Simulated assay, not measured.
Amino acid sequence: MGVAFDSSDRDLSFRIALEYFDDLRILFNAKCSGLEPWQIVSYAISLCFLIAYIKRMTRSNEPPLVQIRKSIFSFLRSLPWVRRKLEADLAKAQAEIEDEVHQSDHMREFYKFLPERCMDTEEILADGRRYAMMGERRYMQHYDPQTREEDMKLSAKLFDLFAHTDPHRSDAFPGVRKMEAEILKMTCAMFHGGKDSCGVVAGGGTEALMLACLAYRNRSRARGEWRAEIVAPSTAHPALDKAAAFFDMTIKRIQVSETDDRANVGAMKRAIGPRTCMIIASAPNHITGTVDPIEKLAKLAQRYHIPLHVDCTLGGFVLPFMEYADYSVPAFDFRLPGVTSISADLHRYGQCPGRLSVLMYREPDT
């Protein structure tokens, strides 16, 4: 037989609970009686920031001790005298690295723009031989001069000169490193990059796009957000999904406009959130071949202070040449302030014999 509780018992329990809460209120007020209003407000705001920080830490995959250590180091690096010391050391290290990589290049003259006139075969081969000799001066000094001369005679074509090289070994093959630097600088100029534009040479469009995602993910984490998010049209490169899986990111695929298969700017604007680390646009995309409204997306990215990456890996390299031929091409590159990075394939319309892409940034701190 169960025990029945009437309404009077429930009312009694409620009154007892209220008395406990009232005792706590009196105790709390007594403890805070010596505090001024500004102190109470400051403590409340500090508590809110602490709760937000703990909540952000719990969303991270890194151990709490690692996050605390990084936060401490980040605070120390922000101190003025520490920041000045770090900047001085970085500048010194950069100068040492430049001297090291250029030690075989005594002239230190670089192609920064496409030549105004077509270079003939002999001129190209002459430049190629000069670049190849940079590595030979350092690593083939013990070779017999006659043998070295015979080896050079076998190199009848530019491709043969560098078939044995490894771009990852820039110390052994400085000529390859210099050619990559020149390719990057000329491409930045074609896409209207300024004097601070920079980037990397990649082995394909997928690698270039993934490197951009990695850079913006690291940028997001440096600002305290550990769940970086990509906002991209549904027609954007599938490498974005690979990057999200590799780099612990999430991606929002937004359906394109039904009328023209281009990015829906309004829908992408609604998809932007506090975790958004980058916006993607295509010129053109890999599904329908349409060019997204990059001017509108650039304004959107600039308004919300979010990086905008323009993927030109599917034939986008031809767009600058169309401008040179007096075709009307809407702005899609670094002329738009909101565009922070661009990826382009040189093996599509760039006459590159193998898979080669470039990833360009507006500036080093993008």
Rank of each mutant, 00 (worst) to 15 (best):
L319H: 09
E225Q: 14
R348L: 11
V41A: 08
M57V: 07
D23K: 08
Y327K: 08
G128I: 05
F159P: 01
D99K: 12
D260A: 09
A344I: 02
E150S: 01
E123Y: 03
A91M: 05
A244W: 00
G2A: 10
Y361A: 05
R335N: 15
L79V: 10
R137Q: 11
K157I: 04
T147P: 00
H237S: 06
S33T: 11
D248A: 03
R362W: 07
R217C: 05
T313N: 09
A325S: 10
Q67L: 15
Y327D: 13
V329N: 01
R355D: 05
I306P: 07
G34W: 01
I183Q: 09
A17K: 06
G204I: 00
D127S: 13
I16A: 12
E149L: 05
Y143F: 12
F334T: 01
C32N: 14
V265N: 07
D127H: 14
V318C: 04
I294V: 13
W81D: 07
E258I: 07
L209Q: 02
C352I: 07
D11C: 06
P174R: 09
I294E: 02
G205F: 05
E323M: 07
E258L: 06
D6S: 08
R275V: 04
S104P: 00
P145K: 12
K299R: 15
P233F: 12
Q302R: 10
E19C: 10
L86I: 15
E207D: 03
M107P: 06
T313V: 08
C277E: 06
L184G: 09
Q351N: 12
S74K: 15
R253E: 05
A52C: 09
G273W: 04
N285S: 09
M360E: 03
F246H: 12
I51A: 12
E229A: 02
F173S: 02
L27R: 12
E87S: 13
S13C: 08
R348I: 07
R253F: 09
H164W: 15
D365V: 01
G316E: 00
K185M: 06
R362G: 06
A126C: 11
T147G: 07
Q67A: 10
A215W: 00
R77L: 15
I16D: 06
Y216E: 11
S78R: 13
P284M: 05
A298T: 04
Y361D: 02
R348A: 10
L346K: 01
M190W: 00
K242N: 08
A88K: 15
W38V: 13
